[in-house]
Amino acid sequence: MKSLNLPTIILLVSAAFWFFSWKSAPAGYIVGDKAADFSLKNVDGSIVSLSDYKDAKGYLVVFTCNHCPYAQIYEQRIIDLHKKFAPLGVPVIAVNPNSPLIVPEDSYEEMQKRARLKKYPFAYLFDEEQTVMSQFGATRTPHVFLLDSNRVVWYIGAIDDNPESPSLVKNRWVEAAVNALLLGDCPSPDFTRAVGCTVKRKPR
């Protein structure tokens, strides 16, 4: 025990700090975490929470927006996901995390226009304070989080593996994950990466 002199203790303490700061570094949810419910304003003016979906077996929380070409490329596929899975109890809940101070095209009014124009069958919510985006750890649009009925995260990532051509898609990751969830199986993979636009944080 004599070897536990002051420098050693300082070293150990700082090492512990370093270790724990590293552990907590990835902000946002990882698969297996329980997500907090939220209440955000929908394009129809109502306030929507996950708990409003009474009989949901799960939730597809999709961070997306108006302006991003990748979000636009995936827009129809997001609509299709809702049409396919909402009747099975897993609706899409779209969230725009961008600050209109950075991208005017992503303002609430523009969201309303786009939702009307494209006849969004799902809720399109405005995360004006950017708190939901921070809690989830959404970094890009589109960015999908699949939650089960207890709001536990089952899948995080991309919709599929080919943004450019829907006909050349080999892996429909989100579809596979929802199907797995409905069967009670763990999705594989449960985390994927994809190109997308960074979330536009409002200036501090």
Binding site: A158, A194, V195, C197
Partner: peptide
């Protein structure tokens, strides 16, 4: 490793 694909 920690990049998830957002650009820039």
């Amino acid at each position: 490793e920690d990049w998830d694909g957002a650009i820039p």
